[in-house]
Nucleic acid binder design. Structure first.
Lengths: 193, 193
DNA sequence: AAGTATTCTAGAAAAATATTCTAGTTTCAT
DNA sequence: ATGAAACTAGAATATTTTTCTAGAATACTT
C-alpha cells in the first residue's frame, strides 16, 4: 500500500489546480510546482497534459463504479436498484466534490481527446454492467417499457443536472437534502404503471 | 441584416473547427485560416480565445431561449409548458447539432472562464423566466411539490443526458424518435399525483 | 468634398506555454 | 555488485497565444 506515488502526487496536484483555477488556466508549470515533481517526471508518467486530465477523469469514474458495484451486492429489488443508482451517485459526489466538479466539467474534453475511445469503452462497459444487473427485473416487467438507451438517462439525468448546479453553487437546496427526492423521482419515472 | 460580418465569420469558422477537431485541438491559427481574418482582426473582435468560446456559447443558449419564448406565447396549460420545455430543447438540438455538441461540452469551460459570471447571470435570468411562466400553474397546485431548484433538473435532466449521448453517437435510438417519450416522462415526473 | 475620428485589418514581434531531449539517479531483481 | 528498467531533472526547442505598431476602410462633421 505504501505512500502515495509520485504519479498520484501529480494527479492530486492537478486536481487541486483544476479546482482552484479551472482546467484551462492551469499550466503544466503550476502542476509541477504543486506536486514537487519535475517537468521530466511529469512527462515520463503522462505523455502530455491531456493524459493527466484523462487519467484523473477515468480514475474518478471508476471510483463511482466501485461504489456502485459494492451496492449491487446488497440490493435485490427492482426499486432498490434504481434508488441505488441515484443514491450512490449522490454519495460519491458528496464525498468527492472537487473531483465531481472536475468530471462533470471535463467529459467533453476527454471525449474529444486521444483517449476518447477508451472513455467510450469504459462507458459501454459501465452501462453494460448496469443493464446486466437490471435485466431480471426488466424481464419480469417491473420497469416501464422504454428503449434501453433512454433508461439510464431517465434515471440519472435529473440528479446529474441538479448536481452540476449544486457544485456550481447555484442552488439553495443542498444536494444531501434532495437525495431522497431524486431517488423517488427516478423510481416513479421508470416503475411500471 | 446584410451579409455576415467579419465577427460572424470568425464565430462560424470557430464552430466548424471546434466540431471537427475539438475545442482544445483548434488553434487561433486554424480559426484565422478558416475565417480568412487576420490575427489582428480576430483579437480586435474578441480579446482572446476564451471569449470566442464564450461568445459562441452564449449566442447558442440565447437561440434556445428565443425558441422557448416563442413557444410560451402559444401555450396555456400546465402540461403544455412542461412539454414545451422538453420539445423546444430537442428541436433546437436537431436543428443545430454542431452547436449543441459544442455547448454541451463547453459549459464547464465557460463557467470557469472570466465570462463565467455573465453565463451564470444569463442562467439566472433564464430560470427566472421559466419560473415566472410556470408560477400560475404551480400556485394552482398542478405540479408536484418540490424545491424550485430541483424542478427544472427533473424536467430537463433526462433529455439533456440522452442528448449528450446521442450527439456522441452512443445511442441506437434517434433523438427524434424519443422526443415524445421524454416529453411524457417529464410531465409524469412533475404532475401532481 | 475635405477633414477627422472611429472601427477594423494586417502581420511582425514578444510572451507564455507545452513538449522533447539528453543526462543523470534510484530501484530492484539477479 | 551489476545491469536493466523505471524514474527524475532541467535546459533546449517547438508551439501557441497574445501584444503591438501601423495602415486601410468606414462613418461622421463641417
Amino acid at each position: 500500500m505504501g505512500r502515495p506515488s509520485r504519479k498520484d502526487d501529480i494527479l492530486q496536484a492537478a486536481l487541486a489546480c483544476f479546482s482552484e483555477q479551472g482546467v484551462d488556466a492551469t499550466t503544466i508549470e503550476m502542476i509541477r510546482d504543486r506536486s514537487g515533481a519535475s517537468i521530466g517526471s511529469l512527462y515520463h508518467h503522462f505523455g502530455n497534459k491531456e493524459r493527466i486530465i484523462a487519467a484523473l477523469y477515468l480514475e474518478g469514474v471508476s471510483g463511482y463504479a466501485r461504489l456502485l458495484e459494492a451496492g449491487f451486492a446488497r440490493v435485490d429489488t427492482a426499486k432498490g436498484c434504481i434508488k441505488l443508482l441515484v443514491g450512490c451517485y449522490v454519495d460519491w459526489v458528496l464525498t468527492n466534490p472537487d473531483w465531481a466538479r472536475f468530471i462533470l466539467h471535463s467529459r467533453g474534453r476527454v471525449e474529444a481527446s486521444e483517449l476518447g475511445e477508451q472513455l467510450r469503452e469504459t462507458n459501454r462497459l459501465h452501462h453494460g454492467r448496469i443493464d446486466e444487473v437490471l435485466r431480471p427485473y426488466r424481464e419480469s416487467g417491473a420497469y416501464r417499457e422504454m428503449p434501453r438507451d433512454c433508461f439510464v438517462s431517465v434515471v440519472i439525468g435529473p440528479v446529474q443536472d441538479f448536481t452540476r448546479n449544486w457544485l456550481a453553487g447555484r442552488t439553495r437546496t443542498s444536494l444531501a437534502d434532495c437525495r431522497e427526492l431524486f431517488m423517488q423521482v427516478a423510481w416513479d419515472a421508470v416503475r411500471a404503471l
